[in-house]
Amino acid sequence: MLRNGFIRTTDSSVGDEYKSPIYQSMHAFKSSIGNLDKLAHLVGTNCGTHIHVECQPELKVSIQRDYGVVWGPLFDHLLEYPLETFLFWGRGFCSYATPGGTDSHYMAINPWTRHQTVEFRLPCFRSKEQFVPVVQFARSCVSLLTQRGMDDFSGIRPEIGQEILSLYQRYIPGDQRWFDALPEDEQTCLLLHNKLSRIIDDEQMSRQRRIRRNHV
Rank of each mutant, 00 (worst) to 15 (best):
M1R: 01
M1D: 09
N4F: 02
I7G: 07
T9W: 06
D11H: 07
S12R: 14
G15I: 03
D16W: 10
D16S: 15
Y18Q: 07
K19P: 01
K19A: 01
S20F: 06
P21H: 13
Q24D: 14
Q24Y: 14
S25M: 13
A28E: 15
K30G: 00
S32G: 04
I33Y: 02
G34C: 00
G34N: 04
L36I: 00
K38E: 09
L39V: 02
L39W: 03
L39F: 11
L39C: 11
A40T: 10
H41R: 00
H41Q: 03
L42H: 15
V43Q: 09
N46H: 07
C47Y: 03
G48T: 10
T49R: 05
P57H: 01
P57W: 03
P57E: 03
V61Q: 00
S62N: 12
D66E: 12
Y67G: 05
G68D: 07
V70I: 02
W71I: 01
L74E: 02
F75K: 03
H77D: 04
Y81S: 15
P82T: 11
L83Q: 14
T85C: 10
W89T: 00
R91Y: 08
G92A: 08
G92L: 03
P99E: 12
G100V: 02
D103P: 01
S104Y: 14
S104E: 15
A108V: 09
A108H: 08
N110I: 02
N110W: 01
P111W: 03
W112A: 10
R114F: 07
R114M: 08
R114H: 08
R121P: 05
R121N: 06
P123M: 04
C124Q: 12
C124T: 14
F125I: 04
S127I: 02
S127E: 01
S127K: 04
K128D: 02
V132Y: 02
V132C: 07
P133H: 00
V134L: 05
V135G: 06
S140R: 14
C141V: 09
V142R: 05
V142M: 09
Q147I: 00
R148L: 13
S154A: 14
G155W: 07
I156Y: 06
R157Y: 00
E159I: 12
Q162G: 13
Q162E: 15
S166C: 13
Q169L: 05
Q169I: 05
R170W: 01
R170N: 13
I172K: 07
I172V: 13
P173M: 14
D175S: 13
Q176I: 12
W178Y: 07
F179P: 00
D180A: 11
D180H: 08
A181M: 09
A181S: 13
L182Q: 02
E186A: 15
Q187V: 04
Q187F: 01
T188I: 11
C189P: 08
L190Y: 09
L190V: 09
L192G: 10
H193E: 15
L196N: 05
I199E: 08
I199V: 11
D201L: 10
D202P: 04
E203G: 00
E203Q: 04
Q204E: 14
M205H: 09
R213Y: 12
R213M: 11
N214F: 00
V216F: 10
